[in-house]
Design a protein around this nucleic acid. Structure first.
Lengths: 211, 211
DNA sequence: GTCTATAGGCTGATAGAC
DNA sequence: GTCTATCAGCCTATAGAC
């Protein structure tokens, strides 16, 4: 069975290679510039060959979208592991913004291009990559609430949504309205963090106002 | 001179008509679906005729973008005129979100499509439509600061940027990741407002903690 | 499994007749 | 000012030879 295994392996390798080259093209020229013809030329195969490995162009787009999202998740992971929720929130912010600005075309593909692509990430209500990563954000605000650091009477889930919308807004405005925005993304990010946190209780001077 | 005036007027009317039909097409099918051929067919002229009124497709896109932005401004205007800055902030939020959700394709065209289009709105640093409308947001936070309702030590300009990013994030996530977000846009908007405001000083009970 | 060849579209833009 | 006709190019996808 060695021969057929090798063939399978080689087929999988070619598939990976195609995806890798496609990813490079998207990163350099944007998703719209990715055509089957150009991709075929770049991988030095005939256009028809691509269809042996992918059903159509959309299938490639979906795969790139999923992988891009996984990259984002990987970038967030170290930040998500920080114990202190305040520090964690700040680190998540940095990591998210850095990813969006360093990989603009990947970010566009994931979150700004085709609703069908993005929607797919959030379809499996329980198990999809989207909900899973949202859980990371949710946990920060649950931990913050437990520490008494969230604004009163706002549920963590809603804070997490506003937080994500804020991050996404910062990234996408920078990507699309570059001409405008004044402060750097990192500064806006830390401002966002500041507005979502309630100032810590002043335990250092408890005498000042107990109860 | 009546005849040439009439001709000029008719030419301008046709130009308006073309733009109007183009706008409808964008609203219904999105900007990518707008082609010179389809547009020509829709206005019942030959494709070549369009080029007598517009240099090329990009010129139409620019015009639609500018007009879409003016529509957004018009929608914000009543809210911007409210005297009380807290109420004004809330009303601006409602108006902005309503516009984005009711005119998704217009919103996409303005802020999510081509960076060159959006950048154009913010080019004239002093006088462009973009900076002008940002001034509206800036003024709210200046007024809020004067009323002691902004979080400490954050300049109004930065709060205005974070506010706008938040609004844009809410709209664009709803437009692109519709599958996901939990709370309705209006709720997220009011949460955003709440996080950007400092609770009012308790003047009702001044004895509680003067100074 | 890979190719060539091609079907069957679409696109923006223009030359030149009327 | 408007048309017809067309250039020159792009695209996805597939049939069928090797």
């Amino acid at each position: 069975m060695g021969i057929s295994e090798r063939k399978e392996r080689q087929k999988a390798e070619l598939r990976e290679h195609i995806l890798h080259v496609a990813r490079d093209m998207v990163m350099k020229e944007g998703f719209d510039a990715l055509s089957m013809r150009k991709l075929a030329e770049a991988v030095e195969y005939a256009p028809a060959t691509l269809y042996l490995h992918f059903e159509n162009r959309d299938a490639i787009a979906r795969e790139l979208c999923v992988r891009g999202f996984q990259e984002l998740l990987a970038v967030l992971e170290p930040a998500a592991a920080v114990a202190d929720p305040v520090e964690r929130l700040s680190r998540l912010t940095e990591a998210y913004l850095a990813f969006g600005l360093k990989q603009p075309e990947t970010y566009r593909l994931i979150f700004m291009e085709d609703p069908r692509l993005s929607a797919a990430l959030f379809q499996d209500q329980q198990d999809g990559a989207g909900p899973k990563s949202f859980a990371v954000l949710l946990r920060v605000f649950e931990d913050l609430e437990a520490a008494g650091r969230t604004p009163d009477a706002i549920p963590p889930a809603r804070l997490a949504e506003v937080f994500w919308a804020g991050l996404h807004g910062i990234v996408s405005l920078k990507l699309t309205c570059s001409g405008f925005t004044g402060a750097p993304a990192e500064v806006l990010g830390q401002t966002l963090v500041a507005t979502l946190l309630r100032p810590p209780a002043l335990r250092a001077k408890p005498a000042r106002r107990p109860r």
